Simulated scan of single mutants.
Amino acid sequence: MTRPSDVKPREGELPGALYKDWVIGQEFDALPFTVTKDIVQEYMSVVNAEPENYVIDGRQAAPPNVVLVYMMAVMYRKYPPQQGGIMIGNTIEFHHPIWADEDTDVVGTGRLTDKYERKGLKYIKYDVEFKTPEGALLVAVNHTSAFPN
């Protein structure tokens, strides 16, 4: 079982990446992890998910956003978190279910797509893809965060 806390650095554990450190086009190292049946059950209980809302062709699926708790861990391995970051938004595409009745090996990868300044804030944008080790796309995310000066 790979819990998000097993792979995600916390603010203050390492010196945080500064805006000047971010390099557009920089690839993030692959982050392999496993979404286990137990993680699916725990996630569903925490978000009060109703299992009947996640049945596909008679089979129980996990809420598709279960992998999003790993999203920032993919980026944080390259750029450790700095204090004061604000999540501005995400665009999420769900491509293939994660089944609730089996463990699913996942590989998270990504890259920094943009950075810019506006109205006193410094913005970063990055993409993360979650795939099976065989390359089947599960979830794709475009994320934007802002940081104070």
Rank of each mutant, 00 (worst) to 15 (best):
G110Y: 01
R118P: 01
M72H: 07
I86C: 00
L31K: 02
T2V: 06
E42P: 02
V67K: 10
V67L: 13
A146D: 12
L112A: 13
G135M: 05
T109Q: 01
T104A: 00
K122N: 13
L138D: 02
A62L: 05
T2M: 04
T104K: 04
Q60S: 14
T91C: 04
G85I: 03
M71R: 11
D105S: 13
P148Q: 08
M72Y: 11
Q82D: 02
L112C: 14
G89F: 02
V47Y: 06
F147H: 15
E42I: 10
D105W: 00
P15R: 10
E13P: 04
V55D: 03
L68E: 12
V128Q: 05
L18R: 15
E102P: 05
A30L: 02
K115W: 12
T144Q: 11
T34A: 00
R111Q: 05
M1F: 11
I88E: 11
A17D: 02
A100S: 14
E129D: 13
A61G: 15
P133R: 06
V35E: 04
G135K: 08
M75Q: 14
A140L: 01
E117N: 11
K20N: 08
T34Y: 02
A62Q: 09
I39L: 15
F33H: 08
Y116N: 09
F33V: 09
M72R: 07
L121R: 15
Y126H: 14
I98P: 08
S5P: 00
K131M: 08
E50K: 15
V7M: 03
P148E: 03
D38G: 12
Y70N: 08
Q83V: 07
K78S: 15
D127S: 07
Y43T: 09
T113P: 06
V107N: 12
A136M: 10
